[in-house]
Design a protein around this nucleic acid. Structure first.
Lengths: 213, 213
DNA sequence: TAGATTGTTAATCGATTAACAATC
DNA sequence: TAGATTGTTAATCGATTAACAATC
């Protein structure tokens, strides 16, 4: 397996390919050329071919790409058939949204536990998972060999918990806070969802657009 | 005002600058050099100077950048002091999280209305806003001159509503669905929050990391 | 075989980094 | 003035696009 580094730009496009291929599959399309796909996805055919060839030759000259197979290949590259055990910290509105919205099993994860700092939420359930108090995180992670945490906590709460999580061997994070995990622990894998940043960007673009008129 | 196009990469870094500057300000720091800031933010000093100079010379040779002033400048560039009126469609878990989590007024927006397709949520309140039924969207937007919508709906629901929203003159979207708004209406401004894609990327990186061992 | 479309190399474009003169 | 640090130009690096030979 040749492990030449794939750029993060390419990786971040894979989910989008996967999504469009799933749609094509559902529409009963069984092959597609890079040119046609490029029209659907609003990117260049060159980029599609370059992207896919980072991982191997999935197409067939003169024919195109087999939709179902390509989708599966991309799923494999992403590792979506894994069941990485994860816990969710924070069962507030964001945690609730994450727990209920995401189809973890088709995204490579299994949500095993949900934790809250205390209060009336403890003991209630989300998606058949009983919310536990924070002070059980440690024992739970050890027992269940948890390596991944979804952090739906405010920044300060993350800051207060991160050392404990790291010491438990949890090094993979899906982070909704603005706490900078990588800065403190360089050997972690962190995907951030920064909703504030996204909304600020929208604000900028609206503001610019208004100026141009 | 010279309007040479600023690259989206630069724009997407502005919220992060803003965040770090806010922190520095809270810590009572009143000036900072690009070199020191680069160490804190884990980027190069060159990039900081290049980024900031897209918008003007905010620094002072031999001294550095005044923290409070620079923060304010970036806030102005982003347009955070605007109060763009927006409605939220979808008061499910994600909509609830968005409505309660985000401090819209410091992000350039004002949340004016929340709408749900019907059911028991209608009439309840979120952040002092009474949730209204979908069929009032049209009249509400006209009365209140709404130009922006936050879409916390599943893809199919967006697909069913987008023409109506567009016809009302709503062209700015904060979109949590995987519906491709820009593809249908090219003259819209859309910021997507694709949580699935983010989690898939995390999955990929974990999978890669496991392989390397 | 002829036509189509990939895989892949080469050219272009743009973003990041380095260097340094300007200047506080 | 000397030291520090910006603003800005130049160099480098990497990503995207174009082109085309390989091949189904």
């Amino acid at each position: 397996m040749s492990n030449k580094e794939i750029s993060i730009q390419v990786i971040r496009r894979l989910p989008r390919y996967y999504r469009f291929l799933t749609e094509l599959q559902n529409d009963g399309v069984d092959k597609i050329s890079s040119t046609k796909l490029s029209a659907i996805m609003n990117i260049t055919a060159s980029q599609i071919r370059q992207d896919l060839n980072c991982f191997g030759g999935f197409g067939q000259q003169g024919y195109g790409y087999p939709v179902a197979q390509l989708k599966e290949e991309i799923g494999n590259i992403l590792g979506l058939s894994n069941k990485y055990k994860a816990i969710l910290l924070g069962a507030g509105n964001m945690g609730k949204a994450v727990a209920t919205h995401m189809d973890f099993s088709s995204l490579g994860f299994e949500l095993c536990g949900i934790f809250e700092k205390s209060g009336e939420l403890i003991g209630t359930t989300l998606r058949d998972i009983t919310i536990k108090p924070d002070d059980e995180v440690q024992s739970f992670c050890k027992e269940n060999d948890i390596k991944t945490a979804f952090l739906c906590l405010p920044k300060d709460a993350v800051s207060a918990q991160i050392d404990m999580l790291y010491s438990l061997g949890i090094k993979n994070f899906w982070n909704f806070s603005h706490y900078d995990i990588t800065k403190k622990y360089a050997d972690t894998i962190v995907e951030n969802v920064h909703m504030n940043d996204s909304l600020m960007t929208l604000c900028y673009r609206i503001t610019q657009n208004n100026k141009e008129k």
